[in-house]
């Protein structure tokens, strides 16, 4: 069947037999990325909303900065947090380096600008009359903003989905801050890089297929939202 065919067969077998190593790695990926996206949503949604409805000096500059952060290389985030969390760094006392918490922090930093930017785009693209209409119907400013959020809810959900897609597929932060420790911080992406370099191509392929499945689900969700 050839090298590729054999590897693919072994990869499918590993997935279908719920191989413990595959399961553990997939779980670590899903767990850290889910935690990171929840935190990124908590930070990014209000930030994007606030930037979308506020008018103040320096707003344009802040938006440009946010746009720049969106394209932040993952290794740069990893490097920055590595400096902060390493034993000699200012936060070294907490001993967070090479733990899932460090990975969650890095991925949160990576996803927050994406979520904030896409929420900002959804808010600026929304009908300008929403807040005033809510106010004329007797709503408080907070209730009016919540109504605006309801009106752009599909855009907000899409922002969170895109952010999740970004963090689950990234390798730089997970590698630099997690250290690829088996059973603790080994994610799908870091395992693929490591196992392939060790010659365990089938194992890497199995994880690649799962990652592809997750990406497919994320994009399906995104497509469904865009059709609304």
């Amino acid at each position: 069947m050839g090298y590729l065919g054999d590897s693919l067969l072994t990869a499918v077998e590993l997935i279908l037999s719920f191989d413990r190593e595959v399961r553990m790695t997939v779980w670590t990926s899903l767990y850290t990325s889910s935690c990171a996206i929840v935190l990124a949503a908590l930070l990014g949604v209000p930030s994007g909303l606030w930037l979308g409805i506020s008018r103040f000096r320096g707003r344009r500059l802040l938006i440009t900065l946010l746009n720049t952060l969106m394209a932040l290389p993952t290794v740069v985030v990893g490097l920055l947090l590595f400096g902060l969390l390493s034993r000699q760094g200012p936060l070294g006392y907490f001993g967070l380096l090479f733990t899932p918490l460090a990975m969650i922090a890095g991925q949160t930093l990576l996803a927050t600008p994406i979520v904030a930017n896409l929420v900002l785009a959804a808010v600026t693209g929304a009908d300008e009359r929403i807040i005033n209409t809510a106010l004329t119907l007797g709503a408080s400013r907070l209730q009016a903003v919540i109504q605006l959020l309801r009106e752009v809810r599909f855009g907000v959900m899409a922002a969170v989905i895109v952010g999740f897609g970004r963090v689950i597929a990234e390798v730089g932060v997970a590698m630099m801050l997690g250290g690829n420790i088996r059973g603790s911080t080994r994610t799908m992406t870091t395992a693929i890089a490591l196992e392939t370099s060790k010659g365990e191509f089938a194992f890497g392929l199995a994880l690649g297929l799962v990652l592809l499945g997750v990406a497919l689900l994320v994009n399906l969700g995104l497509n469904l939202l865009q059709q609304r």
Binding site: R129, L137, G138
Partner: peptide, 28 residues
Amino acid sequence: RQEITLLEQSPLLFSGTVEQNLAFGLKV
């Protein structure tokens, strides 16, 4: 503001049903 209501020239209805729109001001 709860004693005054403005109907704009091109009124905006919130997404959802007619009932949800009418209920908005009553709920707040």
